[in-house]
Simulated scan of single mutants.
Amino acid sequence: MPTETEIVTRLRAAGCVFAEDEATLLLEAAEGGELEALIERRVAGEPLEQVLGWAEFAGLRIRVLPGVFVPRRRTEFLAAEAAGFARRAGREHPPVVVDLCCGAGAIGAAIADAAGPLQLVAADLDPVAVQAARSNLDPIGALVFEGDLYDALPGELRGRVDVLAVNAPYVPSEAIAMMPPEARDHEARLALDGGGDGLDVHRRVAASAHSWLAPGGALLIETSERQAAVAVAFFEAGGLDARILHDDEAEATVVVGVRGPDRA
């Protein structure tokens, strides 16, 4: 079995910036004689989280599978803001929270951890992501569905959703080739590719959100700072009161759209 020093040397040669930390995690994750296989996967460029089988997110250990989008630390900002909306809604009733384009379910898990008890529903188009999300969310009583955006959700949720948290793909198609190989080569294209300007899925989400949100309910979508103003425009076109939130430290941008109260 290779020593930790030997593992660090191999990881450094492969371009791993945090080779020492990664070597420690690989040694901890290895069972029996599988250490060499784990090292080879990491040296070949597979994301560390997929090699380990988990990613840290908002203080939680989120299970990920090969090919599944790895939750980014910047998305903790979206989860925290969504949890705040859930807590406010929960003053009167257990809030209904939907994690749409859920990937491994990290956002939903973080919201539930920070703002529970709540009714949590998650959905994704990628069957492997749905499998990972169920392993993370089934233990906390959430329901996870496979399907295309709102088509995956139970109809009984229409008009009842207090928080709709969405980390949809927002990388422009032509920019995929410039992404780090870890993402480009090892995560599902549908979790990365947002179309021509990166906002194709965001438009679809915003166009129908009003009918799914409860009065006063909020849609939160992660995007880039450059794209945010465009997103605000189609949030407003969908009947939502929109604003931009930004966290400089996390380099995270979230657009929030709130459904106004029903008028008598």
Rank of each mutant, 00 (worst) to 15 (best):
L120G: 05
Y170V: 12
I140T: 03
E76P: 00
D21Y: 07
R189Q: 11
G239A: 12
A191L: 03
C16W: 04
L120S: 07
F69I: 10
E236Q: 15
R10Y: 01
H93K: 15
A165C: 12
E56V: 07
Q50L: 05
H202S: 14
E36P: 00
E4H: 04
P94D: 09
S224F: 01
E34H: 08
A206C: 14
A109T: 00
L27R: 14
E81G: 02
R74Q: 13
L125V: 13
A233Q: 14
E6K: 09
E4R: 15
L27K: 12
V128L: 15
R204P: 00
A177D: 10
G198E: 01
L219F: 01
P127K: 10
A188D: 09
R87S: 07
A133Y: 00
P154E: 12
V121D: 03
A109H: 01
T223R: 01
R184C: 12
E28Q: 14
G195D: 08
R189A: 14
L137H: 04
E20F: 04
A114H: 02
H93D: 13
D241C: 10
V232S: 09
G195R: 10
R87T: 02
L35K: 09
G108C: 10
A183R: 11
F85I: 13
P181G: 03
F234N: 12
D21R: 14
L26D: 05
D193R: 09
A89L: 07
D138N: 08
I39K: 08
D248I: 05
F77P: 01
A228R: 06
A133R: 02
C101N: 06
L25Y: 03
R203I: 11
A252P: 00
A191D: 03
A19Q: 02
G147K: 10
C101M: 13
T9I: 11
G103V: 06
